[in-house]
Amino acid sequence: GKMTGIVKWFNADKGFAFITPDDGSKDVFVHFSAIQNDGYKSLDEGQKVSFTIESGAKGPAAGNVTSL
């Protein structure tokens, strides 16, 4: 299901971020390909987002990341 959280930090050079979920679970890795914005895919620290949890090769990662 959809979860919500806050972007903890975003590394534009490497194209990934971490989200701190609102439910208090541990921070979730985000690859820029999961960001659903049109055009430039970036996130801002402190931004509120919704996302799903996908199981990636290196463990859980956020999918369908959308700005709220």
Rank of each mutant, 00 (worst) to 15 (best):
A57M: 14
V28Y: 05
E54H: 02
K26N: 07
V65C: 15
K26Y: 05
S50M: 10
F29H: 06
D38C: 15
D38W: 07
P21E: 01
I35G: 03
D23Q: 03
L43G: 01
N11E: 04
K26R: 09
F10W: 08
V49H: 01
G59F: 12
G63D: 12
G56T: 14
A34C: 15
D27R: 03
G5H: 00
V49N: 00
L43V: 07
K8F: 04
S50C: 14
L43T: 02
T4G: 03
S42D: 11
N37V: 10
F29M: 15
K26H: 09
M3L: 09
Q36M: 12
G56D: 15
K26G: 08
Q47A: 08
I35V: 07
I6W: 06
G5F: 01
I6T: 12
I35W: 15
S25A: 05
Q47V: 09
Q36R: 07
V49Q: 00
F18T: 05
F29W: 11
K2T: 13
K48N: 06
W9F: 12
I6H: 05
K14D: 05
F16C: 15
K48Y: 08
N37S: 11
Q36I: 12
F10L: 13
A62L: 09
S33R: 05
I35Q: 03
V49P: 00
D23P: 01
N11S: 10
K58Y: 14
D22Y: 03
L68Q: 15
A62G: 07
G1Y: 09
N37R: 05
D23N: 06
G39R: 05
V30H: 01
T52R: 05
K48A: 10
K2V: 13
V65T: 11
D38F: 07
Q36H: 12
T4E: 06
F10V: 15
T20N: 02
A57P: 15
E45A: 13
D44L: 13
N11M: 07
K58M: 15
L68P: 15
S67F: 06
I35N: 02
F29L: 15
D13H: 06
G5A: 01
D27G: 06
W9A: 04
K14M: 05
V28I: 13
S50W: 10
M3N: 05
F32S: 06
E45G: 06
G1C: 15
Q36L: 12
T52W: 13
S50F: 09
I6G: 01
S67L: 08
N37Y: 13
G46S: 03
S25G: 13
T20W: 03
K48T: 07
E54P: 02
F32W: 10
F32T: 06
K48I: 08
G59A: 10
N37K: 07
E54D: 09
V7Y: 00
T66A: 07
I53G: 05
A12Y: 08
F16Y: 14
G63R: 00
N64E: 13
S25K: 04
A17Y: 07
D13A: 09
G59K: 11
V7F: 04
V30I: 12
S33N: 12
G5I: 01
T52H: 07
D44Q: 13
K26Q: 09
N64Q: 10
G15W: 06
G46F: 04
I53Y: 09
V65F: 02
V65P: 05
A34F: 14
A34R: 05
N64S: 11
N11C: 15
K41G: 10
N11L: 07
P60H: 05
D23T: 04
I53L: 11
N11K: 04
K41W: 12
Q47W: 06
F10D: 01
V30L: 08
T20K: 10
A57G: 13
